[in-house]
Amino acid sequence: MTNRIDRKLAELGLSLPEAAAPVASYVPVVEAGGLLHLSGQLPFVDGTLVTGRLGDGVSLEDGQAAARACGLMIVAQLKKYLGDLARVERIVKLGVFVNAAADFTDQPRVANGASDLMVALFGDAGKHARSAVGVPTLPLGAAVEIDAIVQVSASALG
């Protein structure tokens, strides 16, 4: 699957970033019962954190791009943790948090930036359940943060 994902990324003109190190006391990925629980990932574009508030200076399109960047970071964390992406069976759920002005109501459209990426990369296995929530602030002033639950097959080693 890794080669297929790499080809699809290239087709889309995208590349995986370096998997980000935690910014506080947590680990990026926990495996339990055939599921990977990924900590919230922030949107880095060309090494720079995308900050700001949707509906107050950050456009819907920029929010979607930030969500896509979070999705790329999720895939980067998966690849780092698994070694390759062959064990990914399904993207189960994305939890999308949007730094939003009180009257901003397009959180689902922002979240599509990550959701559409998962389907583009993983096909039907990328279709997932999702929440999209507006919040008044996010760590480091990020515009979007996304966590994930991913089903994986048993390790070939054990």
Results as ranks from 00 to 15, higher is better:
1 M>G: 12
1 M>F: 13
4 R>M: 11
5 I>L: 02
6 D>E: 12
8 K>Y: 07
9 L>C: 11
11 E>A: 07
13 G>Y: 05
13 G>F: 06
14 L>V: 09
15 S>G: 07
16 L>I: 11
16 L>W: 07
17 P>W: 09
20 A>H: 11
20 A>Q: 14
22 P>L: 03
23 V>Q: 11
23 V>L: 13
24 A>G: 11
26 Y>V: 12
29 V>Y: 02
31 E>F: 03
32 A>C: 08
32 A>D: 15
33 G>P: 00
33 G>V: 12
35 L>H: 10
38 L>R: 00
38 L>T: 00
40 G>P: 12
42 L>D: 01
42 L>P: 06
44 F>K: 13
44 F>H: 15
44 F>P: 07
45 V>H: 11
45 V>I: 15
47 G>W: 10
48 T>W: 11
52 G>F: 00
53 R>S: 07
54 L>M: 12
55 G>W: 13
56 D>A: 15
56 D>N: 12
56 D>G: 09
57 G>S: 06
58 V>T: 12
60 L>Q: 07
60 L>D: 08
61 E>S: 01
62 D>G: 10
62 D>L: 12
63 G>I: 00
63 G>H: 03
64 Q>E: 08
64 Q>A: 00
66 A>S: 01
66 A>G: 01
67 A>F: 04
68 R>C: 12
69 A>N: 00
69 A>P: 03
70 C>Y: 05
70 C>D: 08
72 L>C: 10
72 L>W: 13
73 M>F: 07
76 A>C: 03
78 L>C: 05
79 K>E: 14
79 K>P: 07
81 Y>R: 10
83 G>H: 00
83 G>M: 00
85 L>S: 05
87 R>E: 00
88 V>E: 02
89 E>A: 11
89 E>Y: 03
89 E>I: 06
90 R>Q: 15
92 V>G: 08
92 V>W: 09
93 K>P: 05
94 L>D: 08
95 G>Q: 12
95 G>D: 15
95 G>S: 14
96 V>L: 01
98 V>Y: 04
98 V>W: 01
98 V>E: 01
99 N>W: 06
102 A>Y: 11
106 D>A: 02
108 P>A: 04
108 P>D: 09
111 A>Q: 09
113 G>Y: 00
114 A>C: 04
114 A>Y: 08
114 A>Q: 09
115 S>M: 15
117 L>C: 06
117 L>R: 08
118 M>V: 05
119 V>M: 03
120 A>I: 09
121 L>A: 13
123 G>E: 08
123 G>K: 07
124 D>R: 13
127 K>E: 14
129 A>R: 13
129 A>K: 14
130 R>Q: 14
131 S>N: 11
132 A>C: 05
136 P>K: 08
136 P>R: 09
137 T>Y: 10
139 P>H: 09
139 P>W: 02
140 L>H: 15
141 G>F: 09
142 A>D: 04
143 A>H: 09
144 V>N: 04
148 A>G: 09
149 I>G: 07
151 Q>P: 03
151 Q>H: 04
151 Q>L: 13
152 V>S: 03
153 S>Y: 02
153 S>T: 05
154 A>H: 06
154 A>E: 05
155 S>Y: 01
155 S>Q: 04
157 L>I: 11
158 G>C: 04
